[in-house]
Write a protein that binds this DNA or RNA. Sequence first.
DNA 1: AATGAATGAGGCTTCATTCAT
DNA 2: CATGAATGAAGCCTCATTCAT
Lengths: 192, 192, 192, 192
Amino acid sequence: MVLQAQEQVKKDKKKYLSEKALEMIVEKGLSNFTMDDVAKSCGVAKGSLYTYFKNKDALIISAFGNLVERLKKVITYEDIKSTDTAEEKAKYFAKTYSQILSDFPSDQFMRLFEILINSTHDQKMMQDLTEIFTDYYKSLLQVWESLFKSKSKALLFQAMFDGLAMYKAVGVSLPPEEFESTFKEIILKIAK
Amino acid sequence: MVLQAQEQVKKDKKKYLSEKALEMIVEKGLSNFTMDDVAKSCGVAKGSLYTYFKNKDALIISAFGNLVERLKKVITYEDIKSTDTAEEKAKYFAKTYSQILSDFPSDQFMRLFEILINSTHDQKMMQDLTEIFTDYYKSLLQVWESLFKSKSKALLFQAMFDGLAMYKAVGVSLPPEEFESTFKEIILKIAK
Amino acid sequence: MVLQAQEQVKKDKKKYLSEKALEMIVEKGLSNFTMDDVAKSCGVAKGSLYTYFKNKDALIISAFGNLVERLKKVITYEDIKSTDTAEEKAKYFAKTYSQILSDFPSDQFMRLFEILINSTHDQKMMQDLTEIFTDYYKSLLQVWESLFKSKSKALLFQAMFDGLAMYKAVGVSLPPEEFESTFKEIILKIAK
Amino acid sequence: MVLQAQEQVKKDKKKYLSEKALEMIVEKGLSNFTMDDVAKSCGVAKGSLYTYFKNKDALIISAFGNLVERLKKVITYEDIKSTDTAEEKAKYFAKTYSQILSDFPSDQFMRLFEILINSTHDQKMMQDLTEIFTDYYKSLLQVWESLFKSKSKALLFQAMFDGLAMYKAVGVSLPPEEFESTFKEIILKIAK
DNA sequence: AATGAATGAGGCTTCATTCAT
DNA sequence: CATGAATGAAGCCTCATTCAT
């Protein structure tokens, strides 16, 4: 019992450190943040980070794991399953994605892409990340698929959203209402 | 005459070095390639790089400048202007983009995004890059716009393509024919 | 208690490193000594120096701060204040300065000038150094002033000594007794 | 004849390069100026400098040789030899040195000391410089000696002046008139 | 003689990781 | 477990000097 409680404490601290690490990554960029940065922002000694994470990569993975976890919660399609007409579905999609685009910190999206891109040349890293992202994308695509009855279209539309998220991260974006109405119009035309 | 010839030689060498640098960036990643790498792959001394580029950033900028230049040549929409029906336009778009997706090294696309993302926290760099990319995207979007008569749609479709390019870079892609037909279908439906 | 002890240890080590740095500066010259030199002579890794000093300049400043501190201790005029006649004062001055000239490593004096000269074109450095030297010279000049009742004369005599110190550093010097008697004679004639 | 003319041309150019080099040294400091700086300011290629000077040190030596040459011309004691009374001599000394202190660029004085100090740890350099300076100081000291009938006093007074010149270089100086009158007063008292 | 591109040794600094306390 | 000083590999950049043209 005591052990379990202690384990929980350790888990919580690990999460706390991961979140602070993500903050630093978002602020300074994936290849510019240092273990020192994280330690300082956490109020712990640098060495302590190594008690919780094998190395810097493990910390990064953990940080992005948390981010994806949070994204999963933000994008819940449970509602859509009950809706009926394509019109309603399209409306829901447009609204939800528009909201994400507006509300979710675009730098965090950006860092998602950054880590994906960066890990291209590191097999071990790529593997760990794939595990994290696979679930996430599988569920996302399933929902699109339920609307379009086509895997290709599902992929294309999710790509459209991700592309836009990236644009926003580098400073190019549409006004939310314009995005919402245009996105809905396009979805609806294709879904029919 | 002689002077002009020598200047040309210098220009050519600069381009050669930029291209080799891009190779290294693509291979190792933007923040993992070193000046040593580039020097070695070019068969010159490290110091020589500094004869041609003020510093590492300047080399990077130059490398990406060349890449975008190459991309501009690949994506020429001169043909499309003469085409007439939406059907033909859509076909042309789908075919061209599909070809790009198949032929153009996807890691290079990826590194385009990488540098954009990475420069987010470096004002000077961001400025230089913006100059490079602005032209490129302006012309791209104009063509889409000529088809859709809508800036928003133009942006969304280019985002779709870029998103897909990124997916491909991290290992997720559609078969070319499937992409081509689906992309064409979607374009056509929206263009009408 | 423990914390204080540790802080003291760190302070001591910083001082130790500064002193070794000064040794290297004196031996090799201000612009020829390297961080490597210092690290090696201290028996620590090069990186460790950066735990104690922000950069090379900070180390240099610290080294000279220590030197001036030591000089301050060597040149204490407390005795002179109690002496009475000009004759006695002159005698004391001549004796003390002669001793300094004989005993104090002349290369160290020289390096004092070297750093002053060298920092002429570095505002930040000049500022830091001014802080260090101001106190030192103020107190020196005050004592001369108490003898001559003239700021100009005080400055001229201190300049005479510094000039001589520099001469010695480049290998030109008078026999101590000759300096002492001549210096005393001159001081006395002017003080009257 | 032609050869002699050519030799003269070469000599002139060497002098020109030396002077430009001195300018750069004064501006940037002995250890911060580069061969590139000199070449650019001379309007020649870097490699050309090596046609005239074996290496950087030789250029420096030459630059300071010229400086001392110029100083020799500025400080001519020919007049003093004819003056008679100590009063007149003192007046002349004070006036001349005051003028030098006011007119002669203090940065150039400073660099004289800089090079002397800097060469302390380079035997070859020290030797070359000694040759240059020996003559200069010998003549200076002779004049002082003619006034004081004492080598020690001669040295002390020249040291006083050099010390002051250095002070001025680092920003500490007396108003010219004050220096002149005080210096004269002191000289006179000692000369009697 | 003049050029200036090329060289490469060498300097400063950063930072992930370790380890004694 | 926590700490943070110590490490040392590795990176960027400078610049005196050389040499083919």
